[in-house]
Nucleic acid binder design. Structure first.
Lengths: 287, 287
DNA sequence: CCGGTTCTCTGACTCCGGTCAGAGATGTGT
DNA sequence: ACACATCTCTGACCGGAGTCAGAGAACCGG
């Protein structure tokens, strides 16, 4: 890694931090303290205090006082949860909605004022560049971890994967085809973003030096980051260090992005090696 | 302006704000309060408290206390200014320099950790996109103002402009050739970034419907933003609303960026119309 | 030398964000 | 019905950020 690259990124961050005053005054600009303003935004249409605390990582006493403040201003009501008398539910009053909309408008106006100095093309360029920055930062912050095959978040990903296949395959997908934890001989990887699993993949032995990659899946909210390629790379690396020299995989013609990923990643099509009805195409790559 | 564009920019800002914790911990991560940490960075090698206050916009009492805190920790010394007994000068001790370097390292490590997940190419892409974002934001935040010809910041820009010409022209440049405020019949524009003038330009009548653009200059620190084009546009607009239909300008062969700006902006070369020795080339554009 | 100005420091405040411990009400499993 | 857990609220804190007014020292112009 070049020290130069680090400095450039830091430099940008400094610049952006300095500008954030201009950019993110969702909250400020009102006489309202920041904590309360955040709450105004976070209380959508009714919200358990329990959830609020978890989402904003607030102390229960602190949250209570913040809400009390908003209540005193008539922006929020706090009522007992209908189902559970211990829980309270916060809800914006009409005035609260107006207040929130006003904060929102203010923020929007600010950005509009900023963009006003640019031409339409320049605005588009700005947005494209911001998307690129975000895409790469998201990719950089995703963590890829080794997990036991039976790990709950991994099974969770596989369930979402199966549900998607069932949706996309004309013939549907039977979740019984998912690799059962017991049969796993290789590695199961999980990709996390901000603690939430956003992708999975596993490899398992076909022969001593031949592995099969299965169930490579990226959650919809994390697509377009290049995460599929990254996971695939990790899977190959893991298999390779385990002595595997050839990886194969099967896929379905409906999964066009996956197929193009495999081709881009150096896989070539081979004759089908599996009897699974979903594996309409087969690919192979020498490591 | 598209509401959509505004929302996208806001969305990016929200994302980036959320990530700033990861990105800008120059300051945090130490047990040191943020105010003190900022001071550690801002006190280069010796610095008048007066300047510090101005730069960081701090209350004098507050600054005093912050420095006292750093002094107690042996990171800073505050001495009387040699030339002026009222003024104090803050200086980092060796321990202060070490502390600062440590904060700096910590921040650098953090970024390095972030970039580690990216390939070299992706890092380059990230930096390029960040530069683009910054470039456009800077351009968007530059303010262009009408100022009286004799305004001090305007004369200041012209002096810097003259100094640069003197440096770049093989034959040097005689500042007496700058348009004196008294002879101005058109408009003088000044570009500001964060309150500092970063560019100037003026137009003045040659005939009732013909104007000459002069002294279009962008400060070195603001080059590459597209500001020259923006200023030129504003000058043309101003002249146009004043009834001008033709603008001319003269320039020097050494000013290659300017020449290319003029060509890109629709100017075509004409025969020289001025007796100024510095106007080796002449351009014209119909508005 | 004197009056006004500049610069710094001190003390006394105010908010806000955040933490902690415990009380009280409500739910849940046995 | 009981013990135990869950959820919220209250009171009592703390430290940091920031403001304000005024005192005191140093400078400057006349």
């Amino acid at each position: 890694m070049e020290a130069d690259q680090i400095e450039r990124v830091r430099d940008f961050n400094r610049y952006y931090t300095g500008r954030l005053g201009l950019l993110t005054d969702n909250y400020l600009g009102q006489d309202r303290p920041l904590g309360q303003a955040r709450l105004l935004f976070e209380i959508g249409d009714g919200c358990d205090l329990r959830d609020l605390r978890a989402r904003l990582a607030l102390d229960s006493g602190y949250l209570s006082r913040l809400l009390r403040g908003l209540e005193d201003q008539g922006l929020v009501t706090v009522d007992v949860h209908p189902g559970d008398g211990r829980v309270r539910v916060a809800r914006l009053t009409d005035a609260g909605h107006r207040e929130r909309a006003e904060l929102d408008d203010r923020s929007r106006d600010r950005i509009a004022g900023l963009l006003h100095g640019l031409t339409r093309d320049q605005r588009d360029q700005l947005i494209a560049a911001q998307n690129q920055v975000r895409r790469l930062l998201r990719l950089a912050t995703v963590g890829i971890e080794h997990v036991p095959a039976a790990a709950e978040p991994a099974r969770d990903c596989l369930r979402r994967y199966a549900a998607e296949l069932d949706d996309r395959f004309p013939e549907g997908y039977d979740a019984a085809n998912l690799t059962p934890p017991a049969e796993m001989t290789g590695e199961q990887l999980l990709a996390y973003e901000d603690g939430r699993p956003v992708g999975c993949g596993l490899w398992t032995h076909l022969e001593t030096d031949v592995a099969e990659i299965r169930h490579l899946w990226i959650a919809p909210e994390a697509r377009g980051l290049g995460l599929g390629r990254l996971l695939l790379q990790h899977l190959e690396d893991g298999a390779s260090t385990d002595g595997v020299t050839t990886v194969r995989l099967g896929t379905h013609t409906a999964l066009t992005e996956a197929i193009s990923l495999y081709r881009r990643s150096g896989y070539h099509e081979i004759a089908n090696y599996s009897e699974s009805p979903y594996n309409q195409l087969a690919f192979e790559k020498a490591l």
